[in-house]
């Protein structure tokens, strides 16, 4: 019981904090932390990208735009960028097809507890260690790995199917890593489609492919687009998957940037490449947020 007691045994009025002060006090810890750990570092990195060389020791500080000319000065980077883009598009495309189909199967062919359990099973790997999951693929696709053992079970003299250290291996690992995102976003989008809409289409003579491409895909488009963004963005920044599954062929923008920070110690170049990539990411966001807003409006 509070010591001061007002009318009818109720607590008495106390002086209250002004509301803006309370709001600020609630927000300050989190946003101060985010500023220190994310916003200031990004700013610092932006500044670094205009330096001539990493300011180690007592080298003079020279400002330059040369780092942003890297694609012009080092043409091999264009090839690397193309590889990264191709990996990103393949991964996103495969995830979109498989993820949409899986979500559709979940929504239309399962119900109740079964559906809930299956959804959790699909999403569960996503929240486990990505590194470990990438590592686990090496057990399967290396020469003499599980895949080969499995095939030779039926056909003892089969040649090795192992494809570790190839670009498809990288895509495979990335699809494995990001597929659950697409299943989740498509699942949410498909769940909100009223059964009556589908029945209406069928009553008007639509066959299953018409229902799929004229009703389900357009209505679930926000889910597909969200999923595609959530996958494409981290995938083009991936460096651990290409290193482990790609070996020597696994040179991507991600690994090149990583190298600048951990091997070459060319932080300005690494920063400039990272910001170029960030610009691409923001452009992707900007392009598709328009699409999303439009589809949300209708």
């Amino acid at each position: 019981m509070p010591p001061e007691v007002g009318a009818a045994g109720l607590p008495a009025t106390r002086r209250r904090m002004p509301p803006w002060l309370a709001t600020a006090a609630l927000l300050l810890p989190s946003y101060a932390w985010l500023t220190l750990a994310v916003l200031l570092p990004l700013t610092a990195m932006f500044v670094f990208s205009f330096l001539h060389a990493t300011p180690l020791g007592n080298k003079p500080v020279v400002w330059t735009l040369e780092q942003y000319r890297a694609f012009h000065d080092q043409p091999y980077l264009l090839g690397v960028a193309w590889t990264s883009l191709a990996i990103g598009l393949w991964t996103t495309g495969i995830c979109a097809v498989v993820g949409f189909a899986a979500a559709l199967a979940l929504v239309r062919a399962t119900a109740g507890r079964t559906r809930e359990t299956l959804l959790i099973l699909v999403l569960l790997p996503f929240w486990t260690n990505g590194l470990v999951r990438v590592f686990s693929w090496t057990m399967v696709i290396r020469e003499g790995g599980f895949l080969d053992v499995f095939v030779r079970w039926f056909w003892p003299s089969a040649p090795s199917l192992g494809f570790l250290y190839t670009t498809p291996a990288i895509v495979l690992g990335l699809v494995h890593g990001y597929l659950p995102y697409m299943v989740l976003t498509c699942y949410i989008a498909l769940l909100s489609i009223d059964d009556a809409v589908i029945e209406a289409a069928q009553s008007l003579g639509a066959r299953w492919w018409t229902v799929l491409f004229k009703i389900l895909v357009p209505l679930a488009a926000p889910g597909l687009v969200t999923g595609a963004i959530l996958i494409f963005v981290p995938v083009i920044g991936a460096f651990m998957e290409p290193r482990i599954l790609g070996g020597r062929v696994g040179v991507t923008m991600g690994t090149v940037i990583e190298d600048q920070f951990t091997q070459a110690f060319n932080w300005p170049l690494g920063s400039a490449l990272a910001f170029t990539m960030l610009a691409v990411v923001l452009a992707v966001f900007a392009t598709f947020s328009g699409v999303l807003r439009r589809s949300a409006a209708t």
Binding site: G6, A7, A8, L10, P11, T13, R16
Partner: peptide
């Protein structure tokens, strides 16, 4: 009978 204009909700009966 009591002026409660400045009294917060919880102290009004």
């Amino acid at each position: 009978g009591a002026d409660v204009t400045g009294v917060p909700v919880y102290a009004r009966n």
